[in-house]
């Protein structure tokens, strides 16, 4: 058969529809943001993105998302391991619950976590007696981001762990490796690409997160608990479109770089598994 000849009909039609819908609904609106951002004078742009409030917002978003993604990586590996390797009653329910943050509206998660960890809430009240405040602090913000991010890590690792050949582990045991050595030297390196993917997805989601964090964070400029998405929304509400667009441009670049990184890791991973 000649190269490039397609047997199944409908390529032109489906290609046209896909490109048209993608362009009209996603790419052109996003391009409008870019076009507007590039029309701003560099001075105006630089002054907006370097105001202390904006810098602190980026610092808060990036730092809290990073910590949340690291915590999620640890618990994500444990959860994926438990769900793949062990059998116990209630396993299916546990497996199903992992997906809850995907299905629950972010605003609902946001108000609930904020209430729970406030000084009158189920968890916040006993902790406040010990002098620990969670709602309206960076700790609360990080907890909301852990909530949002956990399914990304578990669902990235689970399929890889399922396919992992137990021969490697057996070989490691036969060669005298103990369980800890086997996990850290044999299994973990195999999981690394998927762990990076899950970490990256959770991190990217956290940096742009809005609904689930704006209630628990308290959005105080003085205590630096404003996140980037909140600052963009605030500027939109004040009709400060150039300000909103400038910050959005930086956020888009960060998201894009993370997406690129995840894709590179995924391509490498599929190459590796195809070679085996």
């Amino acid at each position: 058969m000649r190269k490039g000849k397609r047997v199944i009909p409908g390529f032109g039609l489906t290609f046209g529809i896909t490109i048209a819908m993608l362009s009209i609904l996603i790419l052109i609106p996003l391009a409008s943001v870019l076009v507007y951002a590039f029309r701003l004078s560099p001075k105006e742009f630089w002054e907006t993105v370097t105001t202390p409030a904006v810098l602190y917002a980026f610092g808060t978003s990036i730092l809290c998302s990073l910590i949340a993604a690291i915590i999620n990586s640890v618990f994500g590996v444990i959860l994926a391991w438990v769900l793949v390797r062990y059998n116990f009653p209630g396993k299916r329910i546990l497996d199903g619950l992992i997906e809850l943050p995907f299905a629950l509206p972010t605003a609902v998660a946001g108000i609930t976590l904020s209430k729970m960890y406030s000084t009158t809430g189920e968890i916040g009240e006993p902790l406040s007696k010990l002098g620990i405040r969670i709602s309206y602090t960076h700790i609360g913000l990080t907890i909301a981001l852990i909530f949002i991010g956990i399914p990304f890590v578990v669902r990235a690792i689970q399929p890889v762990l399922e396919k992992l050949d137990s021969q490697y582990e057996e070989a490691s045991f036969i060669l005298g490796g103990n369980r800890r050595q086997t996990f850290f030297k044999v299994i973990l390196p195999e999981l690394r690409p998927s762990l990076i993917t899950g970490f990256g997805l959770a991190f990217a989601r956290g940096i742009g997160e809005y609904g689930s964090v704006i209630y628990i964070s308290g959005n105080s400029q003085k205590e630096h608990t404003q996140v980037v998405s909140y600052v963009i929304m605030q500027k939109l509400n004040y009709m400060d479109y150039s300000g909103a667009t400038s910050i959005a441009l930086i956020l888009l670049i960060v998201s894009f770089l993370l997406l690129l990184l995840i894709n590179i890791v995924q391509v490498k991973q599929s190459r590796r598994t195809n070679n085996v």
Partner: peptide
């Protein structure tokens, strides 16, 4: 793309 960008930016995109 919509998976990895902030929903606020999606709103901004339609305003722009």
């Amino acid at each position: 793309i919509p998976f990895s960008i902030s929903p606020v930016i999606a709103g901004l995109a339609f305003i722009m």
